[in-house]
Design a protein around this nucleic acid. Structure first.
Ligand code: ZN
Ligand code: ZN
Ligand code: ZN
Ligand code: ZN
Lengths: 166, 166
DNA sequence: AATGTTACGTTATATTATAACAACATCCCA
DNA sequence: TGGGATGTTGTTATAATATAACGTAACATT
C-alpha cells in the first residue's frame, strides 16, 4: 500500500498528534475563511490525510487513500489540491522526496528548512533566521535576487539514533 | 531538442569557459587515476557534456545528445554514468531541477549550496561555512545526525537582472 | 586462455507530474 | 429567480524522470 513505510517518530517523541491535526485543520479553516479561499471537501480531506502524521507523503499515496475511500480520483485531482494547499501556505513540498507535509505556520508564506529522518521518515520544520541571513548575505554579495529556497537536511533523528538496535 | 533553453550567463559574466571544461576533465582524469576509478569513454563524454556550460542539464537531454552522436544509449546508460560521476564527487545533482551540473571542487565530497538563476538557468556553487555551521548547530540542538544536505536557492542573477529589458 | 569483476546494452516498467477538455458547482448580479 | 461568469472537479491521455532485471561485452588478474 504505502510506498514509504516508517514507524518511529521525531518531531516530539510522544506528543499528542490528534492535537496537531485538529489545530492544523482549524487554522486552515479560519485562514481560508478569512481570505475568501475555498477549502472544499476534497482539499480539506487531502490536508487531513497529509496531517495524518509528520512524515511527508507522496501524491500517489494520497491518491490511493482517496480511491480507497470511494472517491473518484485521478492524478490531476490530487495535484490540484496539492497546488491549492501549497499556494495557500498550508503545506510544503519536500523536493528531495517528491512528497508533501503539513506546514507548521500556516498562511505565513515563510522560508522554512527541513530536517528529515531517513529512518522514521519524519520531517521537522525549522525557521532558522541564521540560515536565512547567511543565504541572504551570499545573495547580496552575488547580486542575486532570491525567489525560492530549498533547504532540506537528511539524516537520522535523535529518537531513531537511540533506538537503532533493531 | 534541449528541454531547457537558456542563453545568458551567471557564474562569471564573461569568463573563458573552455578553461573550465579543460580544467574539469583534467582534474577528473587525475583524480580517477589516483583512486583507481575507471573514467571510461562514456563517463568521460557524459562529464564533458555536463560541463558544456554552467547550466544544470537533465538526464534525458544528455541521453539525446549521446544518441545524436551515434552512441547506442538508453536511460540506464546515462543514469549509471551519472551515478558514477556523483559517487566520484565529480558532479552534483540539483534536486529542485532534476538536473546535473559539474562540481567546482571535484573529488572533495563537500557540502555545497547552489544559487540557480531562473532566467539564464545557470547555477553557482557556493561553499559557505556560515550556512554549514548554522545547519550543524540546529542539528546538534535536535540531536540530529546530518547525512545529506540539499541547499538550493532559486532566483535571478545579477547579470539577468541588469538585462531584463527583453 | 581461464576466470572473476566491472561496465554497458536492452527491454520493460515504475514513479511523478501535467495537458487538454468536459461536466459540474458556486457565485454574483440583473 | 434565472443565467452567465468563474472556479472546481472528473476524465483521458501523455510527458518527464528514474529504476529493475537480465544478458553481453570489456577489462583485469592470474
Ligand atoms: Zn503531531
Ligand atoms: Zn527518525
Ligand atoms: Zn565556465
Ligand atoms: Zn541569470
Amino acid at each position: 500500500m504505502s510506498r514509504l513505510k516508517h514507524t518511529k517518530q521525531f518531531p516530539a517523541a510522544d506528543h499528542d498528534h490528534k492535537t496537531c491535526i485538529a489545530h492544523a485543520l482549524q487554522e486552515a479553516e479560519a485562514y481560508c475563511k478569512q481570505r475568501g479561499l475555498r477549502l472544499t471537501e476534497l482539499r480539506r480531506r487531502v490536508l487531513e490525510l497529509i496531517w495524518a502524521n509528520h512524515q511527508p507523503v507522496g501524491a500517489y499515496d494520497l491518491l490511493e487513500q482517496l480511491t480507497h475511500e470511494g472517491r473518484k480520483a485521478a492524478p490531476p485531482t490530487i495535484y490540484r489540491s496539492l497546488d491549492f494547499l501549497m499556494q495557500s501556505d498550508l503545506i510544503h513540498r519536500i523536493t528531495s522526496l517528491n512528497a508533501y507535509v503539513g506546514c507548521n505556520h500556516p498562511g505565513l508564506n515563510h522560508a522554512a528548512q527541513f530536517f528529515i529522518c531517513e529512518d522514521c521518515g519524519q520531517a521537522a520544520e525549522m525557521d532558522d533566521a541564521k540560515i536565512e541571513s547567511a543565504i541572504a548575505k551570499d545573495a547580496k554579495r552575488l547580486g542575486f535576487t532570491v525567489e525560492k529556497r530549498t533547504i532540506e537536511v537528511a539524516g537520522i533523528c535523535a529518537h531513531c539514533k537511540h533506538h537503532s538496535n533493531t
